[in-house]
Simulated assay, not measured.
Amino acid sequence: MSFTLPTYHEPDFTQELFEQSPDASFQKADKDGVAPRGFHSTSMFPEYFKVNGCWVLAQESRMDCLVALDGHDELQVVEARRIKRGDRVVMGRTERGEEGIYVHATGFRTDGESLDDKFVFRTGRSRETAFSRDYDKLYELLRYEREHGNIVFVLGPAVAFDNDSRQAMQLLVENGYVDGILAGNALATHDLEAGLFKTALGQNIYTQESVPNGHYNHLDILNMVRSCGSIEAFIEQEHIKDGIVYAMLKQRKALVLGGSIRDDGPLPEVYANVYQAQDAMRSVIRKATTVICLATQLHSIASGNMTPSFRVIDAKVRPVFIYSVDISEFAVNKLKDRGSLSATGIVTNVQDFIVNVAKGLGCR
């Protein structure tokens, strides 16, 4: 089975609805970081704005942002905190053309798909769902994306707690299935702990047995890395030869570590300022065409909110695929609750998931 990207169908702008729509209205911001009242907020879907009589797609979009017209009369999607006094901000709260704004939620839907509600069983994602088809589709997607897209993983520390899952993630990196990783202090700390001490949070990564004084291991790692000044210097000094972080640095792939208020240490590369972390995460996300979130609820929600349902590449609109994988149904479905409607949820142990994915892709 070969993978084919879904075809995007843009709105038919010759329809009377679009031809009679007024141009979008703009209002200048009076203050830095403050939008005019009644501003338009973006969704994850493709959004078109009528400017000078023409419908224009706002590119590089994401949820909960503003749309502003720059000095070249081009649309820019920006976070509210980046608005500057005098910026011309799109106004309006309707989305069907009434105010020159059209949100196109059905661009990738095939002719056979219906918007009507139906009474059917098991449409949600739960422990009762059979995910075998999801795995098969994911394997084909990742093979396609390795050659034509950009794959970003959002990782919780659970991936580094087990030898097999840690090794599987390393193989995915080394085989070209990872272009970026977004994570927190814990993922990198425990992965490095596993590389040096063969433990994660004091438990042996092979047997899962707690070792004597193991609760010091991650604290020793943090102290040692901080003493070296960087993760890369620590890996070189301690001759670390395996693991997720090791593979990412060796392959020169993007690794963004966003801090948390509960972090120990943290590692030198961890972003302590949340807005700097957001900027760094978005710099990776805005290139992504597939995002896979594993066992990290807050990072998953943050990444999902940054990820639109589409990307414009070589003047063509293509879908962005989002996966949320967790053993908790609540965590898996949280992205949908937050508005990331295109997210596919898989309820399973993430360590089993990543091992299956590496095997399914034939990584060695």
Rank of each mutant, 00 (worst) to 15 (best):
T106C: 07
K359W: 09
P319K: 06
L341C: 11
N356V: 01
V355C: 09
A194S: 15
E209G: 08
K250Q: 14
A194Y: 10
E174M: 13
N175D: 14
P308C: 01
A200K: 04
R286Q: 15
S126G: 01
L267H: 08
D12L: 01
E147V: 05
D136C: 03
A295R: 02
A200F: 08
N52D: 15
L192R: 03
L69K: 10
L341E: 12
L66S: 07
K118L: 14
K316M: 04
I83V: 15
Y135Q: 02
E95Y: 11
A24E: 02
G184A: 05
G265E: 12
L17E: 04
V154E: 04
K137G: 03
N349W: 01
R146E: 08
V77H: 09
E209C: 13
A188Q: 06
D352K: 12
V355G: 06
Y275H: 14
I261R: 03
F13H: 13
G265Q: 13
Y206P: 00
G180F: 09
P22R: 06
S227R: 12
E79Y: 05
N333I: 06
K28F: 01
R82S: 11
A68C: 08
T4W: 01
Y102H: 13
V78M: 09
C228F: 00
D164L: 15
A186Q: 09
P266I: 10
A183Q: 02
K250A: 08
D23G: 07
L69C: 11
A277S: 14
V103C: 12
R143H: 15
E193G: 04
E128R: 11
S25N: 04
I354W: 10
R122T: 08
F108K: 02
A254Y: 07
I327A: 09
R96V: 03
L155R: 05
N175H: 15
Y246K: 11
E19G: 00
D111L: 14
R82I: 05
F49P: 14
S114Y: 01
G180N: 09
V90D: 09
G107A: 05
T207E: 02
K31R: 11
A68P: 01
D326E: 02
V90Q: 08
S114D: 10
K253C: 11
R338Y: 12
S309W: 04
L155C: 15
K359Q: 13
L75C: 12
Y139E: 06
L187K: 02
S303G: 00
I285P: 05
V89S: 11
D179Y: 14
M248P: 14
D263W: 05
S340C: 15
D263A: 13
R85T: 13
Y177E: 02
D264M: 04
D116H: 13
D116S: 13
F119E: 09
L255K: 01
H215M: 11
K118F: 11
R262C: 03
P268R: 03
E95W: 02
M169H: 10
G38W: 05
D134P: 00
L298H: 10
S230W: 07
N185K: 10
T189L: 10
F321E: 01
C228L: 00
E232R: 13
V178K: 07
G339T: 12
A200M: 12
E193Q: 03
H190D: 00
I346M: 15
T4N: 08
R252D: 15
G360P: 06
G202K: 00
Q297K: 13
M224G: 03
P212Q: 00
A80L: 01
K50I: 11
D314S: 14
